[in-house]
């Protein structure tokens, strides 16, 4: 169906999943990417400057 569309998925997902295995631990590459993105977002949220923060005065 997606092939009929001008805008298909940016990444071709029409294949079997890729997995990483380390002893008894097994995780799909897709899940690993999501976890890495969540950690990166968490770290960025802690340190990235928030717009307009300097202009904010005191508390309510």
């Amino acid at each position: 169906m997606a092939q009929g569309w001008g805008l298909g998925a940016l990444i071709n997902l029409d294949h079997y999943g890729h997995y990483i295995q380390w002893h008894v631990i097994q995780i799909s590459v897709a899940n690993l990417i999501v976890i890495i993105l969540m950690v990166a977002t968490f770290v960025a949220a802690l340190f990235a400057p928030f717009p307009g923060r300097r202009n904010r005065k005191g508390t309510k």
Binding site: F42, A45, L46, A48, F50, R53, K57, T59, K60
Partner: peptide
């Protein structure tokens, strides 16, 4: 329904 929030809420960690 408060009109303002404490200054420390102006951080990305509070938007999630």
């Amino acid at each position: 329904l408060p009109d303002t929030q404490p200054a420390y809420v102006a951080s990305w960690i509070y938007v999630f």
